[in-house]
């Protein structure tokens, strides 16, 4: 009796394949499939009804989705730029510190050590209009109106951005600081001799060298921010009245509150495009910047 045996490499890879299939492939295929159905969590039978691109058409013509989409892009742009500027500033200052730099570096990373949920709660308290820290401080300084930090649309957006920036600026600071440490000293000296003021040195020598590091931070953070959920969910829940609705709060509301999972999954696939575009953009920039400073191999 001859038994056909599986090839050895396949057998050896099988556990990995099974695990990957279970945690990545199956959910991926399942969610993609369900985005073509009117799947509702409360009525499992709807999973078997094929509606084609109905969900996608619905999303693309849905003002609420586009509002959330636009708000996410805006959020992303503001947060990334703020974090870049602050991170750059902090890194440059840290680089000048000669004493106690190690401890400072550790302290700098504290915000990253908190769970985003906790950061959300913390800022929810800080910005609370009745008992919040900010309003208390304002009042003790003689400003006598309670600002509705988390209720007014613009202020709420500001508060969320503030929390996000507070939590994640260190990512930029640390990566840029690493760049500064790796930076060769001689070109800086040559620039001094060539007549550069400190600002010109920064502009013409330091910054080009830091660009790859900045783009790496940008890539990482753009993926992070594009799926911002926890802080927003805790602080405003996307509300009030959807004024701070971002893609992910909208998606989770659609999927879990309205239990329209098929529709939520379709939203997920549309918004993935956003992430992919950002990633491609920053990777392009990254390799261009690397080529610029002669790092590309």
């Amino acid at each position: 009796m001859t038994r056909r045996r599986l090839p050895e490499w396949f057998v050896l890879l099988l556990p990995a394949i099974v695990v990957i299939a279970a945690v990545v492939l199956i959910p991926l295929v399942f969610s993609l499939y369900s985005s073509f159905t009117p799947y509702k969590l409360t009525r499992p039978a709807t999973l078997w009804k094929w509606v084609g691109t109905y969900n996608y058409e619905k999303i693309l013509s849905d003002g609420k989705f586009w509002a959330a989409f636009g708000r996410t892009v805006l959020f992303l742009t503001i947060v990334l730029n703020l974090e870049l500027l602050l991170g750059l500033g902090i890194a440059l200052m840290m680089n000048k510190v000669t004493w106690g730099q190690r401890s400072l570096r550790t302290i700098l990373m504290f915000p990253m050590m908190f769970s985003p949920i906790l950061v959300g709660f913390q800022f929810k308290f800080i910005f609370n209009d009745n008992i919040g820290l900010v309003n208390n401080v304002l009042q003790s300084m003689g400003y006598n109106a309670a600002l509705p930090w988390l209720v007014d649309g613009k202020l709420a957006m500001f508060s969320i951005i503030f929390a996000e920036v507070w939590m994640s600026t260190p990512v930029f600071a640390i990566l840029i600081l690493a760049g500064l440490f790796a930076m060769p000293r001689d070109p800086l000296e040559a620039a001094k001799v060539d007549g550069c003021t400190p600002i010109q040195t920064f502009r013409h020598i330091t910054l080009p060298f830091l660009m790859p590091f900045i783009y790496i931070a940008m890539t990482i953070r753009s993926l992070d921010v594009a799926r911002a959920y926890d802080i927003v969910q805790i602080m405003t829940g996307g509300g009030p009245a959807r004024r701070t609705e971002l893609l992910w709060t909208l998606m989770s509301r659609t999927g879990y509150v309205d239990s329209r999972m098929g529709l939520a999954n379709a939203m997920g696939y549309v918004s993935i495009i956003l992430s992919i575009l950002f990633t491609i953009y920053f990777f392009r920039k990254l390799s261009a910047a690397r080529a610029q400073i002669g790092m590309a191999g």
């Binding site: 001689d186 070109p187 040559a190 001799v193 060539d194 400073i293």
Partner: peptide, 20 residues
């Protein structure tokens, strides 16, 4: 005085070219 106010130019032992 900083180097830029000394009107000098220098060739460094290890080139110190601008890599970018």
């Amino acid at each position: 005085l900083p180097p830029r106010e000394r009107n000098i130019s220098m060739v460094f032992q290890n080139y110190a070219l601008y890599p970018h």
